[in-house]
């Protein structure tokens, strides 16, 4: 994948809050990350951690209360002009979790897929619109005659494909996939994952992949950010994160992933994470790049520990940039 150096989307100090004054609840606080063109960026956390809120803030369903979101160098959070709004609506698309709930039961598949075109490309002739709907359906491995049927006639996997076709018909550049396979059977999961990676290869799509399941993320994501209670705690290349998880919360998530090996599972200990182990009363935590592309949240004392661990325990991850920086020498330099 080229164009790695060009951030398609930049999130800066994002805050999403709900409610007023005393009852104000901060779903996301101070989150910053870049997503590069052509990559799959994973966002992992438990339910209630704010991962979906971030996705929704990017696609402008939720208002951002602070910070900004920059898409292709232009701010898209807050008030933006109509032309940009229309462009963003077209270029950023979303795939939803539950294929049973996210399709309009009373509309035919053809209309469901075409709905975005009605809104953003008003001048389109009927033939042209139908052609694009059929193309999108074929691209996701469905038949074009399905356009005249209703969603209830399809299985879960086929419905999720319709959801993907609905995103594709807009010819997007950036797709937010919010738990796209959690509601699917294992055998269908593989089909949908393969379809997503195939589309990425063919069209150079960029994905924000939101999930709670790290085993799926390892397979599909280039980089992964871990979020807990609205705050990012660690961000790294997939291999680096799996070989050398630093933050205790990341380690907890990794230990919870079920593996298909009875011998390993019987001896496995699921770690627990208690926030009180962090003493942030004096020494405030900071978001630091601890080694090439590996960010972690911690105070000075913790960061020193993490640095030691990254130097001693972890072998050098073969990261996808191909930049060979020995973490050990890097740690010594500092």
């Amino acid at each position: 994948m080229n164009n790695k150096e060009y951030p398609l989307l930049q999130v800066r100090d994002l805050e999403v809050a709900f409610g007023e004054r005393r009852r104000r609840f901060y779903a996301v606080r101070g989150v910053s990350f870049d997503i590069y063109k052509g990559e799959t960026f994973g966002l992992v956390g438990e339910s209630g951690s704010g991962k979906t809120s971030i996705g929704r803030a990017i696609i402008r369903i939720y208002p951002t209360t602070n910070g900004e979101i920059i898409y292709k160098g232009q701010r898209i959070s807050g008030k933006i002009d109509k032309k940009l709004d229309c462009r963003v609506t077209r270029e950023i698309q979303m795939i939803f979790q539950d294929p049973m709930a996210s399709l309009n039961e009373r509309a035919k598949v053809g209309y469901i897929v075409a709905e975005g075109l009605y809104a953003t490309e008003k001048g389109l002739s009927r033939e042209e619109r139908e052609r694009r709907v059929h193309e999108a359906l074929l691209d996701v491995g469905l038949l074009d005659e399905f356009a005249s049927r209703f969603p209830h006639e399809f299985s879960g996997g086929q419905r999720q494909r319709i959801g993907i076709a609905r995103a594709l018909v807009m010819q997007p550049e950036f797709i937010i996939a919010d738990e796209p396979i959690s509601a699917l059977d294992v055998s269908i999961r593989a089909q949908v994952l393969n379809l997503l990676s195939k589309l990425q290869k063919e069209r150079g799509l960029t994905y924000l992949f939101i999930s709670h399941d790290l085993s799926v993320m390892r397979f599909i994501c280039d980089r992964i950010a871990v979020i807990n209670k609205g705050v990012l705690v660690e961000l790294a290349h997939t291999e680096a994160l799996f070989q050398c998880p630093l933050h205790p919360y990341t380690r907890l998530l990794l230990s919870a992933v079920p593996m298909p090996n009875p011998v390993y599972e019987r001896n496995k200990k699921v770690l627990t994470y208690d926030e009180s182990i962090h003493d942030y009363s004096v020494d405030k935590p900071v978001w630091t790049e601890i080694s090439e592309g590996h960010f972690v949240l911690g105070n000075q004392k913790e960061l020193a520990e993490y640095k030691e661990r990254i130097g001693s325990v972890c072998p050098l991850p073969e990261d996808s940039f191909g930049v060979n920086v020995l973490p050990q020498t890097k740690a010594q330099e500092k």
């Binding site: 299985s155 593989a190 994952l193 085993s215 992933v257």
Partner: peptide, 23 residues
Amino acid sequence: WALLSSLPQLGVKGEELFSIRGT
């Protein structure tokens, strides 16, 4: 075999994950 092969835990990144054909 097919059920086990389609587990994402066993997938290799960049390669296609095994999926069971048909319904």
